[in-house]
Amino acid sequence: MKQVILLHNPNAGEEDHFKADLTKAIEKEGYRCTYFSIKEDEQWKDQFYEADFAVVAGGDGTVRKVVKELVRRETVNTRITMALLPMGTANNLSKALSLDKETSFENHVKAWKYNKRRRFDIGTLTYDDRSDFFLEGIGYGIFPTLIQTMEKVDVSHLDTTEEHLQLALEKLHQIVLTAEAYHYTIYADKRKYEGRYLLLEVMNIPSIGPNLMLAPAAQIDDGYLDLVTITEKERDAFALHIKKIIDQKKTSFDFQTLRAKKIKIQSINKNIHIDDKYVSTSNGFLTIEIHEHLLDFLK
């Protein structure tokens, strides 16, 4: 009988109900299940590698918290398989794995027995003599501003994930209209590029933020990163693209993208984001690389 460790990021008032229902569903499929609330209990870190695989029930931030522990212990060359139960707002990672949030958790659990796995690459970066990793993407310009903006917005009146995403898109539209463009020097593998951009994103998966598709061709297991740029001249067209998404109208945008394994970026703009985290660097210089197949996901 396989051992599962269930790592859950509970919303207020839902933990007991979820714990009972999901544990029952997992055990019904023949697994032994140990539950941890990732918000309140750090003991899961000690038992992480005793399980056959880890189940992460939450959003993209919860997945990142779990993977952070995995990356921290990578020096011992230990890898664990993960299964996701998408319960966050954007769920960009689950979308990249083709997991449907609307599917019941019982059906997600039943699918694990087929043991279909997806390899997943992880991006790493160094800046200011520090190192970090990313699952979704890192970048300059519009998205660091959006993260700062949303941290200040009162969302207590919003009831659904759709309302949260809609508000984020509306704020994003406002930012696009007024954002400052910066000059960037980019070394992508052995190629050099320069330009002024409103947005510069290094993507590991197709979408970011409020489910905004920036790199439709990005693959999670191909050993490449997709660098996406939007110039100052494209401001109005990109703003219109966002507005049509808000209004639920058909739209497309011709994103300028290049693929590389190693990317270096230099800019006077020192504000970046790493997945959903805002970071201010001291010199605006990043070195970014892709590391192949550091994770396995059940799907």
Rank of each mutant, 00 (worst) to 15 (best):
Q43N: 15
N92D: 12
V56L: 07
R64W: 01
R73V: 09
F36V: 12
E42T: 07
Q43A: 14
T75C: 11
G59W: 10
V76M: 08
L99F: 04
D46K: 14
G88C: 03
N92V: 06
F53Q: 04
F105G: 00
V66H: 05
M87G: 14
S94Y: 00
F105L: 01
T89H: 06
I80V: 11
E69I: 00
L97T: 03
V56M: 09
Y49C: 10
L84P: 08
D100H: 08
Y31P: 13
L97P: 02
K101G: 01
N77G: 04
C33T: 08
S37W: 04
M87Y: 09
Q43E: 13
K95D: 09
D41Y: 06
F48W: 10
W44D: 05
Q47R: 15
F53A: 03
A96M: 11
L84Q: 04
V66K: 06
T75F: 12
K45M: 15
P86R: 10
S37L: 05
V67G: 00
R32D: 08
G61M: 07
V55H: 02
Y31Q: 12
D52K: 02
A57K: 04
F53G: 08
Y49L: 13
A51I: 00
V67D: 00
V55F: 04
T89S: 15
A54H: 00
A83S: 12
D41R: 09
R32S: 13
T75E: 11
E102S: 12
M87F: 06
E40D: 15
S37H: 04
N91H: 08
V63S: 02
V66S: 06
